[in-house]
Amino acid sequence: MTMPLLPTSRADAVASAKAFLGAQSRVRPLEIAFWLLAFAALFVGRSHHLLLAEITILALFAVSLDLILGYAGIVSLGHAAFFGLGAYAAGILAQSGHGDPLSGLVVAAGVAAVAGFVSSFLVLRGADLTRLMITLGVASLLYEAANKMDWLTGGADGLQGILIGPLLGRFDFDLYGTTAFAYALGVLFVVMLALRVVVHSPFGHALRAIRDNRLRARAVGIPVERRLVAVYTLSAAIAGLAGALSCQTTAFVSLDVLDFHRSAEVLLVLVIGGSGRLYGAIVGAVVFRFAQDVLSAMTPQYWQFWVGLGLVILVLIGRDRLDDLGRAIVARILPARRSPEGTP
């Protein structure tokens, strides 16, 4: 790190502060390269598009968890609740003849947001453990409900007869999954664009403050409960989007979408990629899915063992240390181009 220059006057100081904050949220070349690459993938390797669509949806789900875990510091063991709600909402809507994907997306996000809003009041109170239990409990509750309300959800057999209309009235979902991938990627892109504004906004900073030190956050005047309710609702809505995408691109929903392993998996994805930085979720999704493919090719039935082992090792080594390692690698690839003062 270079020592920052001494600001000599007040105007310099203001300019320097502005530049510093600007640099925090600047679009980085790596980011642009990533999106170019992702969209370029639409035009090659058709046979992988189904897999890529799946990864994109997993990434979106992990991004939604990052909002509450990475930014607001809420550990959830039941985030699948909102994914599942979104999936069922979109599925039931399509089953009843309203197969337009985009409106289904909106409805699903709305349903998940309402559920997120209501349950957010439950996770405000108590310590970590109480929160774990509540999030786990809400997800189990929904699982049980979906299981028993088979007249609506198809119960253990899953939702049958989902017919999804063409995207924007023009693009049919094809067997290769090209439309599915384009659709999922488009949604992820829009969500990421929006979220990178949100996390650098006063609201986003307030969340980090709450995560780091709730006591001081209150003393600064941050209405902690209101902010947490807002972010939990937002996170639920995005998880709902991911669920809806999953339903629409596969034309199938089963109880699996609400299962515990899904909540655990998304937690794992986020931790692999690193929490609290949005793109970590995407990296995690890619790594996780490829690892899953490789491992299940090696030991088809027992790949979970290796996932578990990876998780244990990851924790024992320490997430922070892996984080530093990751940063070091990125820094080596991209020589520091963000000077601290940022002004010429």
Binding site: F20, L21, V198, S201, P202, G204, H205, V220, G221
Partner: peptide, 25 residues
């Protein structure tokens, strides 16, 4: 950073703490 810390307090006080659609600063 100190900038961000103080900006939090100023934003909250001026009723801008809930803004999510614009960057800090």
């Amino acid at each position: 950073t100190p900038i961000e810390t103080v900006a939090l307090a100023v934003s909250e006080r001026s009723g801008r703490g809930g803004d999510w659609w614009r960057r800090v600063g």
